[in-house]
Write a protein that binds this DNA or RNA. Sequence first.
DNA 1: TCAATAGTGTCTTTTAGACATTATATG
DNA 2: CATATAATGTCTAAAAGACACTATTGA
Lengths: 235, 235
Amino acid sequence: MSSLTAPLAPISTCAVAVDTALLTIRDGRLRLLLIEPEPSALRGWWALPGRRVRDDESLDDTAHRSLSELAGITAPDAHLEQLRTYGDPSRDPRGRVVSVAYLALTPFADDPVDPGRARLFDVDELGAPGGPQLAYDHERIVTDALERARAKLEYTSLATAFVPEEFTLADLRRVYEAVWGVPLDPANFRRKVVSTPGFVVESDKTASPGPGGGRPAKVYRRGSATHLHPAMLRP
Amino acid sequence: MSSLTAPLAPISTCAVAVDTALLTIRDGRLRLLLIEPEPSALRGWWALPGRRVRDDESLDDTAHRSLSELAGITAPDAHLEQLRTYGDPSRDPRGRVVSVAYLALTPFADDPVDPGRARLFDVDELGAPGGPQLAYDHERIVTDALERARAKLEYTSLATAFVPEEFTLADLRRVYEAVWGVPLDPANFRRKVVSTPGFVVESDKTASPGPGGGRPAKVYRRGSATHLHPAMLRP
DNA sequence: TCAATAGTGTCTTTTAGACATTATATG
DNA sequence: CATATAATGTCTAAAAGACACTATTGA
């Protein structure tokens, strides 16, 4: 243990699990990965992919395993960050479980999700009628994950975790628009991004326009900056 | 557990502990609470106050208990927030311990710390020669705690957790100066604080000047805002 | 040609920062 | 009075935001 003195009173050990909130963007909308429970369990309930921590496994490894085992997603390059740990004694009816929640972000060009028991939900469906019901305290975790993602887009380069290696500034702008749920002025967005040191680096390529035509866009890659100065403030 | 399916492989339970990084300001300097180990243990090593989680105790409660049992600090109104969970399999030589780290902030006017095995260190001493050696991975936790505090002062009203119920804007400015380690222009600081909605509310009191005289300062209280718009950007 | 998208220019409003000035206390 | 600290005023530079304009593609 981490304290240097011996424990005093009723102390046992806890089951420790990792639950992962994976966000991605599909068709211009922010989506969350959820897992359908076993048929025998409650029907119509959905949960974040979660696994218990193995003996010699780091928490990060457990998060990756939760995605690969439950959704067939092997994304070693995906952004993965710890969100928060949920340890209320009554959060799981089957006993004390301390759950370390992770936030995962993957580019929208990723492989399609394992169609087995996993599904990507539009985050706007979550609270709405007809949307999935979340098990345990996973609604709370999802709320925290969305808040974290929305906030970090402002002052970090996290948005680049939602786009592939090569992207246009329109791609990046659509990330901000999907996560924040607001339209952004393309001209002002471009100016802010290119004037923020280290956010993106221009390549010598251009992307081909869409079916309706349009001027080809320059292709960019991720820059070296992790924190943005100045920040990309939400409108 | 939190996943809806049964575990597959070598899984046991973990010892779960809470380690608390308490920051406060004394004599205009940012300080960290550390606990001296038992005499029998390594001399000259210091650790964050930590306790193992009890069976029916929330993580927040464990954090409070770590402060009260190890430093005699009972601060139910102190700011307490989860920092991060450290779960590397080898982080504690005595076995697998998952530690949930907390960040605690208390006003500088608080009661003095229990002189037993607890001590407040100037954070500038920590890396320096002659400073305390930190046990386990606590140096990493402290680094994360300082980074969190410095960052959150920018875009939240967290600075008010370092001052008593009633404070002057000079008090608040000295918080920013101590945590960030930079001097701030008093005039511009004042303008930003009072123009940020909900950050502080003016009372009808005035504080008495110091021994050298000076115009009495207005007394303020905490406002209702938790997030600052616009943010208090670091110089 | 037009429609669509990318990218630039320009203007206004807002905010940040430097620093002078006034106000009110102590000694 | 001088000195110290609080609070306000003013100016400049930087940034945000609205929006017109140009550039390059597909149909």
